[in-house]
Design a protein around this nucleic acid. Structure first.
Length: 422
RNA sequence: GCGGGUGUCGCCAAGAGGUUAAGGCCCCGGGUUGUGGUCCCGGUAUUCGUGGGUUCGAGUCCCAUCAUCCGCCCCA
């Protein structure tokens, strides 16, 4: 092999930046969390929806919003026979597209869906952020009630409680409708106009494009300005309409009754354009700088914006990588039997019968001596070894050996299959 | 796109310009071809992410580049 081909091989076996190989016990942890999510959703009447990993680029441009960083600089976009397609950077747009295209608007209300799968954003990787990452999300279509908001939030909070996540905080806010925000922007800009030059350049840009996002600014100087009493007073007067305020108050009442602790965060705004009324984020101090494990909110105009019938909705998504960083140890199914054998036909037959009884069983395939096979059984931490040689096949028995106690005895097949003769 | 940290075997890791690049774990083979995890013996980096440069001499110094981690931006 020449030097250059070695080099290209080295590059070939290097995974793309911001992607991850998942294997071994880590995959088992993911699987058990995923099945817990499924069960949790299904028990509450949510159905899984599986949409494509790529969609027409325009869907995201119109859905997520043309002004957002996600569509401006983070999408993986490619062209194929005159069509612009993008790897999905988030899940809601695709689910809404499916909702419209599959006629779910005519299903009995509400329509309750969940999804899970990979998402793609072209960003610099850091703790809790990758280019291919995984989300689990929930969407509830057709209702604009505080109860719908409460259920969506409760579904997330109870899931995290079941998983025992540490140091969680539910941050919640009401950003009202588009009209409410126009009213807000006017007042907010009027207050800031005299001191605009004291703000950072980013905020000065946002002043013109998206004033709400200014509140998210990490610049200490800007934060100090936004923390000033007169501005806070303005923020906390709740600029939203009476209807929005009543909706939100009712939601908080429900959360109180359910003993779901929350923090009303007047500074919480979200980066996607489609949110209305309720927005929330669930953060943990056990994560790095990217501390949100779950985020979502109400989006009452998105279905219509994408060409569907007027349909209010609320939803959220959680980041699996961030979630898994918070989930502690999970039990791994142990190996019940390791089959030591030089009689493979009989061994496979026995293994299959045991597996049918839900035992975890491995058959040695090496053809090596029984000593080496037992060595492997011990390395795999098998509870028991089953030794099945020609003598045992002839007598219809098997040697059952407890690898911890070293006890070994002869057991007829039939007895072994009747129950665990430990 | 910008800023900082780190790159020596699959993993952890010694090595501070000078003979053949420690050690541990894992893996493989043997001691023990029908009885294990302990133990013993042996094997596994012509090479230090890559490419240049300085030097009589470079894993050790310089430059560039790549990768990775953390942070900014933004978000799950």
């Amino acid at each position: 092999m020449t030097g250059t081909s070695q080099k290209s091989r080295r590059e070939l076996i290097q995974r793309p930046k911001g992607t991850q190989d998942l294997f071994g016990t880590e995959v088992e942890r993911w699987e058990s969390v995923e099945s817990l999510c499924r069960l949790h959703f299904q028990n509450a009447g949510y159905q899984e929806v599986r949409t494509p990993v790529f969609e027409h680029t325009e869907l995201f441009e119109r859905g997520v919003g043309e002004g957002t960083d996600i569509v401006n600089k983070e999408m993986y976009t490619f062209e194929k026979s005159e069509r612009r397609l993008s790897l999905r950077p988030e899940g809601t747009a695709g689910v809404v597209r499916a909702f419209i295209e599959q006629g779910m608007a005519r299903w009995p209300k509400p329509v309750k869906l969940y999804y899970m799968g990979p998402m793609f954003r072209y960003e610099r990787p850091q703790a809790g952020r990758q280019r291919q990452f995984h989300q689990v999300g929930l969407e509830l279509f057709g209702l604009d009630t505080p109860a719908a908001d409460a259920e969506a939030i409760l579904m997330a909070m109870r899931l995290f409680e079941q998983l025992g996540l540490p140091n969680l905080s539910l941050q919640i806010n009401n950003i009202g409708t588009a009209e409410c925000r126009e009213r807000f922007k006017a007042g907010f800009k009027a207050l800031l106009a005299p001191i605009l030059t004291q703000l950072c350049l980013d905020c000065q840009t946002r002043y013109g494009s998206n004033p709400l996002r200014m509140l998210d600014c990490k610049n200490p100087g800007c934060q100090a300005i936004y923390a000033q009493p007169d501005l806070q007073a303005f923020l906390q007067t709740d600029f939203t309409s009476e209807d929005c305020q009543a909706h939100f108050a009712e939601l908080l009442k429900l959360l109180d009754a359910l003993k779901v602790p929350y923090h009303r965060n007047f500074m919480l705004v979200r980066g996607l354009d489609y949110y209305t009324k309720t927005v929330f984020e669930i953060t943990s101090t056990n994560l790095g700088a990217q501390n949100a494990v779950c985020g979502g909110g109400r989006y009452n105009t998105l279905v219509e914006d994408l060409g569907g019938p007027e349909t209010p909705a609320i939803g959220w998504a959680l980041g699996m990588e961030r979630l898994m960083a918070l989930v502690g140890e999970l039990p791994v199914k142990p190996l019940d039997y390791y089959l030591v054998t030089d009689q493979h036909a009989a061994a496979f037959d026995l293994a299959e019968q045991l597996r049918a009884q839900d035992y975890k069983v491995e058959v040695d395939l090496s053809g090596k001596g029984f000593g080496k096979q037992l060595e492997r059984a011990a390395k795999l931490n098998a509870r028991q070894a089953l030794i099945l040689g020609s003598a045992e096949v002839h007598s219809g028995e098997v040697q059952l050996k407890n690898l911890a106690s070293k006890e070994q005895r002869v057991v007829p097949y039939a007895l072994l299959l009747q129950g665990n003769p430990e």
